[in-house]
Simulated assay, not measured.
Amino acid sequence: MRISRYILVFLVGFLIAKFWYQKKDNHQQKEEVRVVVNSIKNMSKLVISSGNFSEVYNFTDSKKYFYETISFDKKAIVTVNAKVEVGYDLSKLEIEVDSLAKKIYIHKIPKAAITIIPDVKYFDLQQSQFNAFSKNDLNKINEKSIEKIKQTVELTNLKKEAKTRFFEEISKIYQLSAIYGWEVVDKTNSRFLSDFKEVNLLK
Rank of each mutant, 00 (worst) to 15 (best):
V56I: 09
F123S: 15
I149E: 05
L8D: 08
D137Y: 10
D25T: 04
D98P: 02
E68Y: 09
S71I: 12
K108T: 08
K45R: 14
G87W: 08
N38Q: 06
Y88R: 03
L155D: 02
G181V: 03
V33F: 09
F123Y: 12
K74G: 02
V184L: 00
V37A: 08
K148L: 14
V120F: 04
E85L: 15
M43E: 14
L11I: 13
K41N: 12
D124G: 05
N38F: 02
K83C: 01
D25M: 02
N142L: 14
E168W: 00
V35F: 01
G181K: 04
A82H: 15
Y174T: 06
I179W: 08
L8T: 01
A178C: 04
H27Q: 14
S39V: 02
E32F: 00
N58F: 03
T115G: 07
I116F: 11
F10W: 05
E68L: 03
K103G: 04
D124E: 00
E169L: 11
E96G: 11
E94A: 05
F130N: 10
G87D: 11
K23S: 15
S190D: 12
V184S: 03
E55N: 05
K144L: 10
V78Q: 09
A112G: 09
D73A: 04
K75F: 06
V36I: 14
Q28D: 11
I70F: 06
I117K: 03
L90C: 00
N38P: 01
E154R: 02
Y57M: 09
I77D: 10
S128M: 03
K203N: 14
N139F: 07
K197Q: 10
K144Q: 09
I16L: 02
D124M: 00
L15C: 10
N131Y: 01
K64N: 12
Y6F: 02
D73H: 07
N26P: 04
T115K: 14
K64M: 06
K163M: 07
F14M: 09
K197T: 10
R191N: 14
D186F: 09
T188F: 01
T156P: 13
W20L: 13
Y174F: 15
K75C: 06
A162N: 12
K92P: 06
